[in-house]
Nucleic acid binder design. Structure first.
Lengths: 214, 214
DNA sequence: CCCGCTCTTGACAGGCTGCCAACAAGAGGC
DNA sequence: GCCTCTTGTTGGCAGCCTGTCAAGAGCGGG
């Protein structure tokens, strides 16, 4: 049983010539699999190439550097699908926040390994990693704001917009830490982390505590 | 001008024989200096040895592995002095939370470079780094609980104690993300981050919203 | 059927890490 | 004061990893 058979990525024949996009996708999938189990520093390019079923040099050909490959995989992993924020049920802000938190917890539970492999996020060490995480957070903040603060208009008051986005991004730090408490430490159950995140989200958003739709 | 002259660590004579504890301290100081400026992966053992004014192999002799040295430095850096939590002014919980946040912000502002350089730990989900951070958070959670929830008794209800500590540790995620918004992005000023952290801390603690001392 | 494009490979050079035996700087005994 | 013995310290060695590059091979076009 070779690794090519166990791996979900098909590698029917070595040296097989593929479309660049297809090959890129194969390598990225392999990288996502490995980085889901072990941290960046522990995964060598030889392993990445073996998992993808290609020669080691091909990684550099497509992604330049091992770090670039990691950053690309990380960016894909952190990107939140746009459809998630659309059509959240609930009338009051608390209800909508609850629905958003439920969606998030379901998603994270489905791919817990992948999510945790990224780490606590908002880390400090690597500037490039930080930048990728920040960009992903920026997009996620957009989703949250449009879903929960629809009356907010960035153009009308740019200063308030900056502060609001900052508060939402800071809230993501709470989300990540709470996820760790739930998935890794087990110090919170599903209901506990849900209550924590809903409470924090409602408390940290601006304006009246709870807005009712008339 | 040799590096030994520019470095703040004194290295009067190469091969100088020191007490093991003193040598350990010297190496640790050098590591803290370098890790304050650049991330873990970018600092080689050769640089660490040069900064400390010793041979490279001595690092392994004292700390085993480059990673072990890093973890030791990280543990020292994250340790919060015990005196910080004692004697917080204020009667209401909000007042005491504000005092705690003020202390934290002052401390972080004083050593912003160190705080941000190590930050939350390395990205990539390194288990050992995460463990060091978690241990430091555990201690910090003790300080916060004793300072802000003095009526809490861990022995009386162990389950409630686990949940309370989990909420406080999750709050630390909010603290770190908010610090980044303040120090790195500049999207929050001092008053903004203070308001955010006080609001979050009060909202996430259990029991009545605000406890008044009669 | 042959040619050319380019996807793919294997090998090479440089750097870094952990290990280890040899060296010598102090401390203690006489 | 000199010698010896402990042990802090050094420099080199082997192994692994990464980025680069020219050569080879698959596949479409003429």
């Amino acid at each position: 049983m070779t690794s090519a058979e166990t791996a979900s990525a098909p590698s029917p024949s070595p040296g097989r010539r593929l479309e660049p996009d297809a090959r890129r996708a194969e390598i990225l999938e392999a990288a996502l699999r490995l980085y889901a189990e072990r941290p960046y520093a522990d995964v060598s390019t030889s392993e990445l190439a073996r998992e993808a079923g290609v020669a080691r040099g091909l990684l550099n050909h497509y992604f330049g550097t091992k770090r670039d490959l990691y950053l690309t995989a990380l960016r894909i992993l952190l990107t939140i699908p746009e459809e998630a924020a659309a059509g959240l049920p609930g009338r009051t802000r608390t209800e909508r926040a609850g629905a958003a938190v439920d969606w998030f917890l379901d998603t994270v539970a489905a791919r817990a390994g992948l999510w945790l492999s990224v780490g606590v996020g908002g880390a400090g060490g690597d500037p490039e990693v930080d930048r990728v995480v920040e960009e992903a957070d920026e997009t996620a903040a957009d989703r949250v704001i449009t879903a929960l603060v629809p009356e907010h208009d960035p153009a009308s008051d740019p200063a308030a917009d900056v502060v609001l986005r900052a508060r939402v991004r800071a809230y993501f730090g709470l989300v990540r830490a709470a996820s760790r408490e739930w998935l890794v430490r087990g110090s919170l159950d599903h209901a506990g982390v849900r209550d924590l995140l809903v409470t924090g989200l409602v408390a940290l958003l601006p304006g009246p505590e709870i807005q009712e739709d008339p």
